[in-house]
């Protein structure tokens, strides 16, 4: 599990370091998944009942990481959506999706 987290992070980072905006967005998305899984892993992957009272289970899985991840998922969605539209806008206005060519525009 941890290794998968590592791989997700590695791939996400690599994508972020590339020049194309789309790749960068995909990279952040993948890193987001990595983070979620990392939190889940850190909470301990012990198996128990879902954290819902009244299901007659012996013990629950840890609810706290789940709550954190839930927040993270939503935020991740928000940022991804914003980035995506932003890059789309940038492309529409500037005509490139290459980060290296985007730079220096503030001088204009």
């Amino acid at each position: 599990m941890s290794i998968v987290v590592g791989i997700l992070f590695a791939i996400g980072t690599y994508l972020i370091l590339s020049k194309t905006l789309l790749r960068i967005i995909l990279g952040t998305s993948i890193i987001g998944h990595g983070v979620n899984l990392l939190i889940l892993t850190m909470g301990g992957l012990k198996k128990g009942g879902p954290p819902i009272i009244g299901l007659n289970t012996q013990y629950f899985t840890d609810p706290l990481p789940q709550a954190l991840i839930l927040t993270a998922i939503v935020i991740n969605f928000a940022t991804t959506a914003l980035l995506l539209v932003l890059s789309y806008r940038a492309y529409a206005v500037v005509g490139t999706d290459n980060v290296e060519q985007l730079r220096g525009l503030e001088d204009e």
């Binding site: 941890s2 590592g6 997700l8 992070f9 590695a10």
Partner: peptide, 14 residues
């Protein structure tokens, strides 16, 4: 760098 980040995160998780 990416592999480094990945490894660090994996180690952190472990």
């Amino acid at each position: 760098v990416s592999v480094g980040v990945g490894m660090i995160m994996a180690v952190v998780a472990l």
